[in-house]
Nucleic acid binder design. Sequence first.
DNA 1: AACTCGGGGCC
DNA 2: GGCCCAGAGTT
Length: 346
Amino acid sequence: MIFTKTLTRWYSENKRALPWRKTKNPYYIWLSEIILQQTQVKQGLPYYDAFVAKYPTVFDLAKAPESDVLKLWQGLGYYSRARNLHASAKHIVYKLNGTFPNNYKALLKLKGVGDYTASAVASICFNEVAAVVDGNVYRVLSRYFGIDTPINSSKGTKAFKALAQELIDKKNPADFNQAIMEFGAVQCRPKSPNCAVCPLKNGCVAFNKNTIAELPVKIKSAKAKKKHYNFLVFISKDQKTLLEKRKGKGIWQNLYQFPLIETNNAQSLNALKKLLKTYEILKDTDFELVPYNKDAIIHKLSHQHLHTKFWIVYVNTLNANGVSFDKVHDFPVPALIGSFIEDFNF
DNA sequence: AACTCGGGGCC
DNA sequence: GGCCCAGAGTT
């Protein structure tokens, strides 16, 4: 088909030189695909290099403590990717005897590997004819074929997967999959795509009907909820502070933070001081409370806007859980906390 | 089918 | 402010 041929030719002439394109080692391809989930190449690239340097093989990754893996992942977001990456590395090493899964069905069983990643690794490393469907593929196909089925409806998911599977180059699935994604990222961009020099514009329905800007169609997601976070930055006279590990289901699982008080609205100095007097750690001890930032820092996540204040709590001593200032940098923390730690200059 | 999970970059 | 990004897992 002309679409498939044109795309693979375009790719051979225009592909970017990226480190994971120099190898077919499934460990490296898997690693790159996990890092690139919901993440642009520019943002993921330094993390890929860092992981390859620190964990050159799946055995090195499997041996590492989870906390080290999260530390290296710090700042990239979607931390379940790091936790699942590590868990799957351990599974491959200790349950599969270090033999990497070598087909779509087996890859799909790994934690953190869904339809997209299983297809990507299977096609790139093992030449399996498994079409990838990511954000780029949705965009390219919806425009070229003029499809307005919402890409995030169950109907759309199935339809685009089937279409991609039909179009994939059966002789060279690896290059076709990478070609259509690269084309979406570089040429058929979400905003201001470069239609002027597009090799597919003659057959592109959206280009010819001038509906490029309307495609792909996507069902809107709910607006982000506003939350109020008050972080307590304890400072003791012997240069220690407190960090706690986040547990349970929510954001930043297994990362560390300063003790947090979530409130329904912004707190004044006096209101927070009152709250702290009943706070377990401070029940019978004197403390001094000083706000660090006057205006709340608004940290934006996909589904939450965190209106954040850091409060410095001066105390005489801390219990055995106190963390020396020079150790603070060793903990994996969310970007929001990391920025504070840098700014505060522990 | 809807919701949750990050952070950065663009308009 | 809204949208997007080499998506996956849970409810």
